[in-house]
């Protein structure tokens, strides 16, 4: 069941569209923002709200990489793996994260605090390598800086 708040947010987001289905991506993002990820139940909630089937919504949800169909940690670290960051030392930063938090890309720490995902160019190439945690972007990341950055997210 969608909560009232979710419902209100969805109504608001769908206002601009000529039909409800157009809001499917917005709906997924809104619900995900509140619930962390899109479970099968969330998927069906959204589908019902939009007058779609679970298959309809899942087809969309699985296409986009910012929609999580599996649970994620309390915080998500997106590590840019595109070209400029790769040149400037992405691999070392990645290795550091693995070492400090014992997770591979795509995994969540055992305490459920952090999920680390690779992401395409974050648009901060002049400050490569770049790392985004939740909504905050960090540039010129070095292996040494990793822990002090991540420590801000409990």
């Amino acid at each position: 069941m969608l909560t009232d708040i979710e419902r209100r947010e969805l109504d608001d987001a769908l206002k601009h569209y000529p039909d409800k289905r157009a809001g499917a991506i917005d709906a997924l993002l809104i619900v995900q923002r509140r619930r962390g990820w899109i479970s099968d139940d969330s998927l069906l909630d959204i589908a019902q709200f939009l007058g779609m089937t679970g298959d309809d919504v899942d087809s969309i949800a699985t296409f986009y990489n910012l929609i999580f169909r599996k649970p994620v940690g309390r915080h998500v670290a997106f590590l840019c793996d595109s070209i400029s960051c790769w040149i400037m030392g992405y691999e070392q930063v990645c290795a550091q994260i693995k070492k400090s938090y014992e997770i591979d890309l795509g995994q969540t720490t055992r305490d459920g605090r952090l999920t680390c995902l690779p992401i395409a160019c974050l648009g901060h190439c002049e400050r490569a390598p770049a790392l985004m945690i939740d909504q905050d972007v960090y540039g010129d990341v070095t292996p040494e800086k990793v822990e002090s950055i991540v420590e801000k997210y409990k």
Partner: peptide
């Protein structure tokens, strides 16, 4: 029909039902 669809993207596509 509404209960068959394509899921995923790039070369990881799935044609089937949600469940």
């Amino acid at each position: 029909g509404r209960d068959l669809n394509v899921f995923g993207a790039h070369d990881a596509l799935y044609f089937g039902r949600e469940q």
